[in-house]
Amino acid sequence: MDRRVIFSNKLLPYLLLAPQLAVTLVFFFWPAGQAIQMSVMEQDAFGLTKTFVGLANFKELFNDPEYLKTFWRTIIFSGAVAICALVPALLFALMAERVVRGATFYRTILVLPYAIAPAVAGVLWLFMFSPSVGIVAYWLKKLGIDWNPKLDGNDAMLLVIMAAAWKQISYNFLFFLAGLQSIPKALLEAASIDGAGEWRKFRTIIFPLLSPTTFFLLVVNIVYAFFDTFGIIDAVTSGGPAKATEVLVYKVYYDGVVALNLGTSSAQSVILMVIVILLTAVQFRYVEKKVHY
């Protein structure tokens, strides 16, 4: 859609675009280009010479069992975060839509985690579940559950999933609430008159009508779990113990910044770019569809 009436300056629009384009070129396109370039290069240990190695870095990655493990771990982590953040959010939104008294109060508290930095959310959960000082760890011990995220990889994974999901519930809650509010009330009343119970109304009316929202949120949650949980993982486990919580983004960081292995780190960056592009494409295809229905 284009405007009919416009201004006719020749130079001005370029000047207006310049700041954003400058930042974009220098800090987005140039580094992205470099990542692609470095991903097909091999650098010697002293960083003195570079040789073109084609797709060798990628081949090496996909033949590396550690990398494949990280890949699967990331998928499991993202799936778990998405489910743990979506299901409670939907439940709370369904309930919040029904209450009249205290609705604002409930909403205000439920959206708070959105404001909290991932790394800080990580610290909150780390503290509660710390085997030495944490209150929840103490309760678990009382219940006879052996809990130590510092030593046990599964415990650590569970902890980062909980912290990551906790932060994302707010976001999902708001979108589900907006989705629910757009369902025509007449439809639900008609169903009630026909004698449909709550569960049946949910299954046959609410859930299908919410499915665009749910699908959209699923993609957003996966993107969140893939990329935005770096702070949580770094604060809670630093990828440990023994790499049990190392996801793809964390590995790019670790291999590049800590281990200084530029070739593989860049190749991993390129793979991540491809993943983001795919996920964004899925998300926008959905948006297109929604606009037209």
Binding site: L12, L21, F227, S265
Partner: peptide, 28 residues
């Protein structure tokens, strides 16, 4: 509010940065 050569090209350039979060281009 303007028409000028390269308008959509520049718009897409900005749009594409959505797909390049810091996390994927850390080192460079």
């Amino acid at each position: 509010f303007f028409r000028f050569p390269g308008r959509m090209f520049f718009f897409w350039m900005i749009f594409i940065t959505l797909m390049l979060p810091v996390e994927v281009r850390i080192l460079p």
